[in-house]
Computed example of a mutant assay.
Amino acid sequence: MKYFISYTTRDKIISLDFLTSVNDMFSEYGEVYIDLLHNNSINKQQRVFEELEKCDEIILIETESVFKSDWVKIEIEKAKELQKTIRKFTYAELIQKVNKGINNKRMKVIC
């Protein structure tokens, strides 16, 4: 399983430490792509689209500003075009899951 993590850093609660914890948690179940952690490409925008095409599921981290982010909107629309599964977690849910571990059967599919 390959996961693409979609988020915005407009909300200051999305920190490098938090994203690293999310990466570690989902890495137990497959490959993970988090732009802030993994995108060392020269053409960063192209890399995002390539990773979206390669992934099996998009994990959307829902925060107050997530749907105000143009990039998140682009990622979600592209994921829908590619007929990818999108699973939404609030920040609070992920903090709990980071602390307890993840249960795939409880993930909520939004598209």
Score class of each variant (00 low, 15 high):
99 N>F: 05
75 E>D: 15
60 L>N: 08
34 I>S: 01
41 S>R: 10
97 K>F: 10
76 I>K: 07
78 K>T: 11
97 K>Q: 06
35 D>Y: 07
51 E>R: 02
101 G>N: 13
39 N>P: 09
91 Y>T: 04
28 E>R: 01
55 C>M: 07
88 K>Y: 02
77 E>M: 12
73 K>H: 03
97 K>V: 06
74 I>G: 04
96 Q>V: 11
29 Y>G: 02
83 Q>I: 13
87 R>P: 00
94 L>M: 15
35 D>N: 14
73 K>E: 02
72 V>P: 02
89 F>C: 14
50 E>A: 00
93 E>Y: 08
31 E>R: 10
99 N>P: 02
35 D>S: 11
55 C>S: 09
37 L>Y: 06
95 I>E: 06
109 V>M: 04
64 E>M: 06
96 Q>W: 05
103 N>T: 14
70 D>K: 15
85 T>L: 03
76 I>E: 06
72 V>E: 14
58 I>V: 15
37 L>K: 03
65 S>H: 13
109 V>E: 10
54 K>Q: 07
76 I>N: 03
66 V>K: 06
85 T>R: 05
81 E>V: 04
38 H>S: 01
40 N>P: 00
54 K>L: 14
79 A>W: 02
76 I>M: 15
56 D>R: 00
48 V>I: 12
38 H>G: 03
58 I>C: 00
55 C>G: 04
33 Y>C: 08
75 E>W: 11
49 F>H: 03
35 D>F: 04
79 A>K: 08
99 N>S: 10
29 Y>S: 07
85 T>N: 12
38 H>Y: 05
32 V>D: 01
61 I>W: 09
76 I>P: 06
101 G>T: 14
35 D>K: 10
30 G>V: 09
78 K>A: 10
82 L>I: 04
39 N>D: 09
79 A>E: 01
102 I>M: 15
50 E>N: 01
31 E>A: 12
57 E>N: 13
66 V>L: 05
90 T>C: 03
58 I>N: 00
88 K>I: 09
50 E>I: 01
63 T>Y: 04
108 K>Q: 13
74 I>A: 07
50 E>L: 01
54 K>S: 12
90 T>F: 01
94 L>H: 05
64 E>S: 12
53 E>G: 12
82 L>W: 04
50 E>Y: 01
89 F>R: 07
70 D>V: 08
106 R>F: 13
91 Y>P: 03
108 K>W: 10
105 K>F: 12
44 K>L: 04
59 I>Q: 09
